[in-house]
Every structure is written in structure tokens, then in C-alpha cells.
Design a protein around this nucleic acid. Structure first.
Lengths: 240, 240
DNA sequence: CGGTCCTCCCGTACGCTGTACAGGTATGAA
DNA sequence: TTCATACCTGTACAGCGTACGGGAGGACCG
């Protein structure tokens, strides 16, 4: 329970390092997460971190995994499926994902880009697949949809995060757009206001768009509509 | 026409630098694009590049712009709209985007993350907005949809690109997935094969999913269905 | 023809990065 | 008490982006 100490100083733990790294990333962007900087914040020599993580890459993996764990905590255990229609369950899962990602936007680019076989990642995929399988998708279809959905949500937040990073001035852009030759760029000039402003924080980052796409794919794949179509396994479980 | 020379040596041009940088990124990943490395490839001192680009950031911008220009070339000039249904026009635009991005996967993360006001970027948005406006969307709706669509496609390719980078072994993953406790991860074990393999190159990176989502949004926004609903401007053109 | 300016590039140097390698020191076991 | 192990420090190195100053060559003007 209580952290082991040495010389009266608390010992460094990987979890503490990851926590601090996440704080740092949230506060000053992923670029501020530096071995030296992180070590300084933890009152420790840079090389001390290399006892717990083999490389910075591994540390980044751990950070990504931290987010996955948060998502899992929000989504709740596997048994806690609200038993509603599958679209709703799926929406809840993706929403949890978006919530966590939006809380740590600058870490988002890390999350589903590394193929994580960690416990949290596996449990999340398990949940996702469970929902989709129960909706009647075959394992391969469920996999494809799950993968795409996960990637889309993270991708949306990630792109947005990097975007905000390199963003320029707020309405300087609008002025430049409005000043364009109207005969060459009529639509751009017309939409200068909308184009220059970033979309409000209430927007779901296109989550509903992703969901709509999935529903459309669902309709295409399983013509029988809603309540519990028979599962259609297209591939036997892995050979023994 | 012929490049200016000095001392018999061809002068360095920004375009040449960008070309070389793109080659380098395609061949060895974005991480290999280094001022020093690039300069070496161009038989020039690192600081020579800083005459043509104020910073590396600016060079990356130029690289992104290179891709946008390629897209524009594929999509053709604005007048070349095939006059089919708008979904088809939109699909063609997004498809061009995907084609170029897939040709330079490691550069993809750069493309729509920086808010580019370059000529190519503007012309592309103009085309996109034109299609959507003609489909009956209001300027703000068209902007929102265009932005999301662009981000999604790039995001999909970008995530995939970074993913391939850090990828591990091909079927080592499958074995690990199959070996999971089946009572805890039944769905994962069941879909081990599908999960371990990356989706084939023929897949459109979820492009059709994005399109389906947009169509759904379209149906929600403009209840009158297809042929040329009246344009519904929701905001006057910029004040004089 | 000589001088002057501007364009384009080189050399050096600084502070930053990740991290290899060797050396220490406190702790728990024997 | 002795020793192995776990954890951390110190030093050093190659590579990064880039600030600053200088210098060679063509262009232009007298």
C-alpha cells in the first residue's frame, strides 16, 4: 500500500512517471515530454527513468496505455452492458473513448497508432467486439468495424490536437479568406466565417458521423434489421 | 525554363528541396527528414536550406502543400465537375485525396493538421465546398462537412501510416491473441485472425464509411431528397 | 572598367535531444 | 558481517534545429 522508500525518499515507480508525463503533456503539449524535463520534475536524474523504461518509446507506450485504462474505467466492466440497442452501446463505448481523448488531446496521437496488446487494450477490444457480435456482425466484420471506429475517433481528436498546436491567428484568417478574389473562390469567400472559426467544443468531433457510417455499413451487411439477428460466424474459432 | 546556375552548379530551389524531402520521407519515413540529412542529399550545407525556408516547420508546410498540389492535379480544375450526383462528385474528391495520401503515407500526418492557406489548399476547399453547396447544404454545413471529411480521410491514412511504422511481427500477434484465456476474451480469441492481420491494401481506409456518414448527415439536414434542393444560405456574404 | 549591392551559400558554435556505459549506495537475504 | 541485488547518479557522445558572421559570385550603375 504505502510506497517503498529509500533514504526517506519515495522510490520512483513506473506509474508515477507515467502520471507525471501525462500531466506534462496535458499542460504543455507532447513536445514538452522530454526525458530530461520529466526527470527534473520527478527530482531525479534522467538516466533514472531508464531503469523503469527501456526507452522513451516504451514510456510513450505506457502513456498511451494509461489513456486506454482510463477509457476502460469509464466504460465500466464488460458485464455492465446497458442491454439497450447495439447502436446505443456502441455510441457509449465510442463516447467514452472520445471523452478520455479530449481530456488528453496531445496524447491522443499515441493511442491507437501503436498496436497495443496491453490488458486495457485487449479488454476494450473485447467489449467492442462483444457489442458488435451481439448485433449480428461476423467476427471479421466486427473486427473491421471496431478497428475503423477506434481509429476514426482517435484520429479525429488527434488531428484536431495537432491542429490547435500549429494554429495561427483567430480572425486574421477570416480576413485573408474574405479578401480572396470572389470570382475564383466564391464558395470560400462565402464561407469565410465558418472556415476561419474552429468548431465549437460541443461538437462531437464527428462522432455521430462515424456512427452514421457504421449504421449504414450495418444495414448493408445484415439486411435483417434490428432485434437480434442470428450470429453469422464466417470463420471457425482458431484451429487447435 | 532551364535552372539558373552558378559556378556551373545548379542553384538550389525550394521545389527541389521539397521534392527531395518527399522522396526521403517516402523511402525512410518522416523521421529521416532532417535538415542535415536533406542537405547532405542535396550536396549542400545544412544552413543553405535556411535561405529558402525560414525553419524546418516551414519546410514541412511546403511538403504538405506538395501533397495538396498533387491532389489538385488529380482532381482536375474546378470546371471539371462530372455533373453527376453530388455523392459521386464528393466520392471522387475524397478518393483523389486518399490516393495521394496513400502514395505518401508518412507525410499524411502533416497535411490537414496545419491550417494551410496556400493556393492548392484553397482551391481544394473551393472544389469541395462547391460540390456540397450545389448539393443544397448551407455554407456553414458545407464547411463542417468538408472539414470533417478532409480530416477523416487524412486521419485514417495518417494513423495507419504511423501504425505500420511501429508495427511488430505479423503472426506473432495472432498467436498471442489466440492464447488468451477464452473465458475472459472470447470475442478477441474468436477474431484473432482478423485482428492480427492488417486490412488489405484494397480497402478504402473506411472511405465508404465516411461517405455513408456524410450521406446520413445530409439526409438529416436537408429532408428534401435529391435533385437540386434550393440553396439555403444561412449567412450573408462577408460584410463590405 | 571599377565599385557596390544583393543573392546565395559556407563554417562555426550553442543548447537541446535520447541514451550507452560505468560507477555508486542503500536494502534485504545469508 | 558479507554479499547480491535493485535502484539511482555522472559523464560522455552523436545527432538535432538553428543563430550569427563571413565570403564568393553575378548584376547593375557610374
Amino acid at each position: 500500500m504505502k510506497p517503498r522508500t529509500r533514504n526517506g525518499q519515495d522510490l520512483l515507480t513506473p506509474a508515477a512517471v507515467v502520471d507525471r508525463a501525462l500531466m506534462l503533456a496535458d499542460a504543455e503539449g507532447l513536445g514538452a515530454v522530454t526525458i530530461r524535463r520529466l526527470a527534473h520534475e520527478l527530482d531525479v536524474t534522467p538516466m533514472a527513468l531508464y531503469w523503469h523504461f527501456a526507452s522513451k518509446e516504451e514510456l510513450l507506450d505506457a502513456m498511451a496505455d494509461g489513456l486506454l485504462t482510463e477509457m476502460l474505467a469509464i466504460a465500466g466492466p464488460v458485464e455492465t452492458v446497458p442491454a439497450g440497442p447495439w447502436r446505443q452501446q456502441l455510441a457509449a463505448l465510442l463516447d467514452a473513448q472520445c471523452t478520455v481523448l479530449r481530456a488528453h488531446p496531445s496524447v491522443a496521437p499515441l493511442v491507437w497508432t501503436r498496436n497495443n496488446l496491453s490488458d486495457a487494450a485487449l479488454r476494450l477490444t473485447e467489449r467492442m467486439l462483444a457489442v458488435l457480435r451481439r448485433a449480428g456482425f461476423s467476427p471479421t466484420d466486427a473486427t473491421r468495424i471496431a478497428r475503423r471506429a477506434a481509429r476514426m475517433t482517435t484520429a479525429l481528436v488527434a488531428v484536431r490536437a495537432q491542429f490547435v498546436d500549429g494554429d495561427g491567428d483567430p480572425d486574421r484568417v477570416r480576413d485573408r479568406l474574405s479578401a480572396l478574389p470572389i470570382d475564383e473562390f466564391p464558395r470560400v469567400v462565402e464561407a469565410a466565417v465558418a472556415l476561419s472559426g474552429c468548431d465549437g467544443p460541443d461538437e462531437h468531433y464527428g462522432l455521430e458521423l462515424v456512427l452514421a457510417g457504421i449504421e449504414a455499413e450495418a444495414a448493408r451487411l445484415t439486411p435483417f434489421s434490428e432485434p437480434n439477428p442470428p450470429p453469422t460466424p464466417d470463420r471457425a474459432p482458431p484451429q487447435p
